[in-house]
Amino acid sequence: MKIRFSTLGLLLLPLALFSGCKKDSDSLEPTGSVNFTVRNVAGSQDLVLNNTVATTATGETFTTETFEYYLSNIKLIKSDGSTYAAPDTYFLVDQAKPSSLSFTVPGVPAGDYTGVSFIVGVDAQKTGLTDPATFTGDLNQANNMYWTWNSGHIFLKLQGTITSTTPNKPLTCHIGGYTDPNNAIVTATPSFSGAKLTVQANHTPQLHLVANVTKVFDGPKPVALSTFTGAHMPSAQSVQLAQNYAAGMFSVEKITTE
């Protein structure tokens, strides 16, 4: 086995050099794709924009006009603890755009995976770049998820109306910030609960995520809507909300195979 690989490696070496220093083993490992779907909910109800009334743990309520967030730096974890970090994965999930509620990560090495992790937002290295040509695809500033006066992406946008106060008041959460002390980059690791995600060549399993909007406020550091004045910039308040949604917003509903 060993001999075969190194011989092959030698044979492939000139090719690898030509193709820009790719790892020679890459081309040997079979890979498959993983399809992610996201279902945004408010507690037990599917989230319908401008309609669903979401209720927080303390019984406060709000409705949602806009719910958008980035999922990036997707990693799949095997039972032995080894991980596959999918390169260049930046997806903008926008409840108003059904096509954004599903996306596919290609090139995942075949194997059985038992966990997943992703940044809710954009990593500091990427969002801190200043050349607009580096913001391809969903990162394009034309998506309106970028602070023009304080360079950097908005990681999560939740806009709506707080309906449990009299009078009702507007709800605005624009969460972002990638430098201390107001670094709002958080990682979510929703559990597979013992299930397995099996990746094979020519075969696309589906990982169904659920995202519960009320968890922006409910979580390790609950935020009371009655006194909430909004989050519009990198701030301690933004970090607090990010810690909440990192902890509890995402869960794995099921894993299916077509």
Binding site: T130, D131, T148, W149, N150, S151
Partner: peptide, 20 residues
Amino acid sequence: FMADGGVRGLELQALAPLTS
């Protein structure tokens, strides 16, 4: 760029007046 240095590159700067 800007009086508070909030904008970190010349290309990015134009987005601020455009969208404000």
